[in-house]
């Protein structure tokens, strides 16, 4: 059975995955009993690309990541990773992947360097190779001076960097990052982004989930916007913004009790208007111009801010909801 299966999967690989296609999903579905976490999504990830899954909590991003990581079986549709079927060739696929899960799950009984070393041993890598590799990764994660510290004594940012370094121990072709910077302070985030840029330059394919739009804009060449298990839009961040939003956004606040009332009277201004509980958003080519018009109509907002459109606005447009709730 083994051989027939191998041939069949190679056939499938030829059909669906040319050399530069790392991940191919068609109608990918995951159902838990009567709950559908991922609802028939299609996407492809090319070699060397940085691909993002953007959406709020519960959109199905992590489930999609787990299916790609061959730690969750799909219940419908097709999925190939480098031409292999994760439902049947789990260990083999996982050898190609570096996984950075949403929560750091280090081996707390072990020291920092031992965590990297033993993770490499799980892949069957040789001790000699790993001795060198661990040093490289400690440098990369800027953790050389913490090498002999037990993991539970590391700071949040250090743990996160260790997790990313650990994900690189098998020299993966695809690095999967699930919410890589959630819970980190701004400085730690920027250090991490810098590390990820370096990987991208080296040709590692990145798959990133995030609910931070600035992260998605910074890191992703292309992304899908997910909500309730479905894909709402797909494209490069700049293209999506161009397609679904205006150039600028004016945010004004009148105080939570007055926002709705003011919005009703100002709704003809700009290209489009969104009323949120705490503020009103005016989408326009020129935000300052709209602000002047508001003043002219005799309204005095408590605060006002003109900014560039972001993926947050794209998401709001597509779903009527904000990303971080």
């Amino acid at each position: 059975m083994g051989n027939a299966f191998k041939e069949e999967s190679t056939e499938l690989a030829k059909k669906t995955a040319p050399a530069d296609l790392m991940i191919v999903a068609k109608g990918l579905t995951k159902k838990y009993d009567d709950f559908t976490a991922v609802d028939g999504i299609d996407f492809q990830v090319k070699r060397g690309e940085s691909f993002g899954l953007l959406g709020p909590n519960g959109a199905g991003k992590s489930t999609t990541m787990k299916m790609i990581g061959a730690t969750s079986l799909r219940t419908g549709g097709e999925l190939t990773i480098l031409g292999k079927d994760p439902n049947k060739q789990g260990p083999e696929i996982r050898a190609h992947l570096g996984v950075v899960p949403q929560t750091d799950n280090h081996d707390n009984d072990l020291k920092a360097w031992e965590n990297l070393y033993i993770y490499g041993r799980y892949f069957g890598l040789g001790r000699k190779f790993l001795k060198k590799k661990v040093e490289e990764l400690l440098d990369f994660a800027q953790l050389q001076d913490k090498r002999d510290v037990k993991v539970d004594q590391l700071s949040g940012g250090m743990k996160r960097r260790l997790t990313i370094a650990r994900g690189l121990v098998n020299e993966p072709e695809i690095l999967m990052l699930d919410e890589p910077t959630t819970g980190l302070d701004p400085q730690a985030r920027h250090i991490l982004w810098d590390r990820l840029f370096r990987l991208k330059e080296e040709g590692v394919t990145l798959v990133i989930t995030t609910h931070y739009m600035d992260e998605a804009e910074q890191l992703c060449d292309r992304l899908i916007v997910m909500d309730k298990g479905k894909i709402m839009a797909e494209g490069a961040p700049a293209d999506l913004i161009k397609k679904y939003s205006s150039k600028e956004v004016l945010e004004v606040r009148f105080g939570s009790s007055k926002n709705a009332e003011a919005a009703e009277k100002l709704k003809h201004l700009g290209d489009r208007i969104e009323t949120l509980p705490d503020r009103i958003l005016f989408y326009a080519e020129d935000g300052e111009k709209v602000l002047k018009q508001i003043h002219k109509l005799g309204f005095e907002p408590a605060t006002s801010l003109v900014r560039r459109s972001s993926l947050e606005d794209v998401f709001l447009r597509l779903t009527g909801r904000t990303l971080v709730e």
Binding site: G69, R94, V99, Y122, F123
Partner: peptide, 9 residues
Amino acid sequence: QTMLATSLG
């Protein structure tokens, strides 16, 4: 979970 994210079975 950590172990099974690698190529272990």
